[in-house]
């Protein structure tokens, strides 16, 4: 059973002047299975938030169908099962955290006892104990983000939609949020979150969809997308003279007294390793370097992509001098 199904979603915005049209979504197709964490990945302006707003009924699509648990998303009742954390959330700053959670709870059909229990449990879960009676105007961005997650969870929803949940969080906040999201998956909840922060995606998601310029470029299990292709092989060695190494393999780089040799295929690995050992060199590691989510993402972006400068990628041109 699918938690979310989007078919051929299209949305156009109109400029106030000159009636210019902007096609923001150009036929999005997307499926989220129950119980999974789905990462909705795309650069700023790709159409992530617009898609989310269409799911929640904040925007009306020009065309397409959105189903939540098989029911049309436009129905108010379908939002009973959804918890939503908006991007850079802003809440009524004249309320305290506790008041905001009580207000959020009052918009669902919960009993007074349920509300009390949920509010107390969530304040503890998101790490706001001791701050529950502080007015929100005194909250930091990280605290607001935690509170945003708490209000999204107030009715114990099956399906969570988080729009850029990691933006503005410090490393501790990000780790805490990751832990909470993973524990929610353990509880069987479905989580759909958008982000342009690749590391967070790679650490958590089961499946990923990449959106660029309003179109879905790729969708699939993260493990399949990443393991589908090995980029190159890397041999790291030491205790060998550069002259000798240059005779064995022209393409290498020197870093911290160690040499990194890059091979396009695995056919030459044995021969190169044997030659290094034969020249009294020491093999430190042999790595199979696979595509990361970042590589996949930038490949999809095509020629307009920025230069890849990831720390995992060794220099592959040989001369170290």
């Amino acid at each position: 059973m699918k938690a979310l199904e989007i078919k051929d979603l299209k949305k156009t915005f109109h400029s106030n002047f000159l009636f210019k049209k902007y096609r923001v979504l150009k036929g999005i197709n997307l499926n989220v299975e129950k119980g999974e964490i789905y990462g909705f990945l795309g650069p700023n302006g790709a159409g992530k938030t617009t898609t989310i707003k269409c799911i929640l009924g904040l925007l009306f699509p020009d065309q397409g169908e959105i189903l939540i648990d098989g029911q049309p998303a436009a129905a108010v009742a379908s939002r009973c099962r959804i918890g939503f954390l908006p991007e850079n959330p802003y809440f009524y700053d004249y309320l305290s955290a506790r008041e905001l959670l009580f207000f959020s709870a009052s918009l669902f059909n919960l009993t007074a006892a349920e509300v009390r229990d949920r509010v107390a449990a969530l304040i503890h879960q998101v790490g706001l104990s001791g701050h529950q009676d502080l007015k929100l105007r005194k909250f930091s961005k990280g605290m607001i983000q935690r509170l945003g997650l708490a209000q999204a969870l107030i009715h114990n929803p099956d399906f969570l939609i988080l729009d850029e949940p990691f933006s503005g969080l410090d490393p501790i906040g990000r780790k805490d949020l990751r832990t909470i999201i993973l524990s929610l998956r353990e509880q069987g909840k479905t989580i759909f979150f958008s982000s342009h922060i690749l590391q967070d995606m790679e650490m958590m998601v089961d499946r990923v969809g990449i959106i660029l310029n309003g179109s879905m470029r790729r969708e699939g299990k993260l493990s399949e997308l990443i393991s589908r292709s090995t980029q190159y092989y890397e041999i790291i060695c030491s205790h060998i003279a550069e002259k000798e190494l240059a005779k064995i393999q022209a393409n290498f780089a020197c870093r911290d007294g160690q040499y990194s040799i890059t091979l396009a295929s695995d056919s030459d690995i044995n021969q190169v390793v044997e030659s290094i050992i034969h020249n009294n060199g020491r093999i430190v590691a042999v790595n199979q370097v696979k595509m990361t989510l970042e590589d996949i993402f930038f490949n999809e972006m095509g020629p307009s992509r920025p230069a890849t400068t990831g720390p995992h990628r060794p220099a592959t041109t040989g001369d170290s001098r």
């Binding site: 939503f84 809440f91 959020s104 918009l107």
Partner: peptide, 10 residues
């Protein structure tokens, strides 16, 4: 955008 928090609920 506080309206998002209300209208995204039922």
């Amino acid at each position: 955008k506080t309206v998002f928090n209300i209208l995204s609920k039922p």
